[in-house]
Write a protein that binds this DNA or RNA. Structure first.
Lengths: 187, 187
DNA sequence: CTCAGCATGTAACCAGTTACATGATTAC
DNA sequence: GTAATCATGTAACTGGTTACATGCTGAG
């Protein structure tokens, strides 16, 4: 069976805490969105090859669900992956491709593009700041404990917050530059 | 014909300056890598639909090449795209997926992961800082001219530099935290 | 004489999305 | 009544990569 990054992520999510396919999709949504049509086949393959176990859980008022948990073989597989070198990151960002060519339009197009980006990034910043604050309040010990998964989550949140804030700052710089250049042209 | 983001990027590259497929791949390499097997079919489709023109260029000592340039229809198509809203960015970063699960290993694994990331980011920072410096020295007027494509390139470089520096800073914070926590455990 | 660079392309495959199917419950 | 949430899945497609084919030149 082929283990791609998403498969390892699914394993990592289930190792933190057993979950259904539906819950995995929700967990992934904020930092690496994936559709259920991608997750369910991965779970089926993982189960067929003995990397996860599955238990049917009856629920009332809701449909029944399949809760998956990682086997020792699955955990070993994940551990081995963590000793390898990660591939360089891949970024697909339409916004950047648009900025690349925006010089062919009037400067207003750039301004709109940057303003919208800033708004988007401000929303993301609020979202992650809130998430981190909630976790800090609820699990003040765990987030500083190297052997707790919440420690890793804290690191990822703090990275995300710092990066997003940096991008907002850049947007502000571009906007300032833009206003300045306009005033000089008009004068 | 279907216009995806890569197709618009190819159009944007050719609008800055006519190029061969081979040169487009090189241009893309630093900020949105693509293989020639992806670019050549895109060029063929663009030409078949009249969005680009193609001229055979004889070369001595090198194979002949096909140089493509954007038609007015192609430019109009690109301009229309710039008035739309970009899709939210997609990031595939193995490193982040590894950090997500690294709590199951000894703290040394996290330390190695972060140190390698820092080294990678430092290389990227040097690369883009150098690129920007060269452009600033060679085209001091263009990079502040809204109607020059170099202005856009400068914005993208400065963003990349700021983001990369921010990531290095985060790596340092994690490493500092790590050293501190270890000293407390040993004491 | 081997390797890197220039140059163009095709075929097979993997990763991920869109669209669809099914069906119950709760909130407006 | 209709939209959202819970819950699992399949089929068809798009986007992108890997591997392959071809061939010439210049540097070590």
């Amino acid at each position: 069976m082929i283990f791609n990054t998403t498969t390892y992520l699914v394993l990592g999510i289930l190792l933190r805490e057993p979950k259904s396919g539906y819950d995995i999709v929700k967990e992934l949504a904020s930092f690496r969105p994936a559709k259920s049509s991608q997750i369910y086949p991965i779970l089926a393959k993982l189960e067929a090859n003995g990397f996860v176990d599955c238990t049917q859980v009856q629920q009332d008022g809701k449909p029944n669900k399949k809760v998956y948990s990682v086997t020792s073989t699955g955990k070993a597989k994940l551990e081995a992956w963590l000793d390898t070198e990660p591939e360089p990151p891949v970024i697909r960002d339409d916004f950047l491709s648009m900025v690349y060519s925006v010089w062919i339009k009037e400067p207003e197009t750039l301004e709109r593009l940057i303003k919208d980006r800033k708004t988007y990034m401000e929303q993301r910043l609020d979202f992650f700041t809130e998430k981190l604050a909630v976790m800090e309040a609820s699990f003040p010990a765990d987030i500083h404990n190297f052997y707790s998964w919440r420690h890793c989550t804290r690191l990822l949140y703090s990275r995300r917050i710092a990066m997003t804030a940096q991008e907002i700052e850049w947007c502000n710089d571009v906007l300032k530059d833009h206003a300045l250049a306009r005033r000089t042209t008009e004068a």
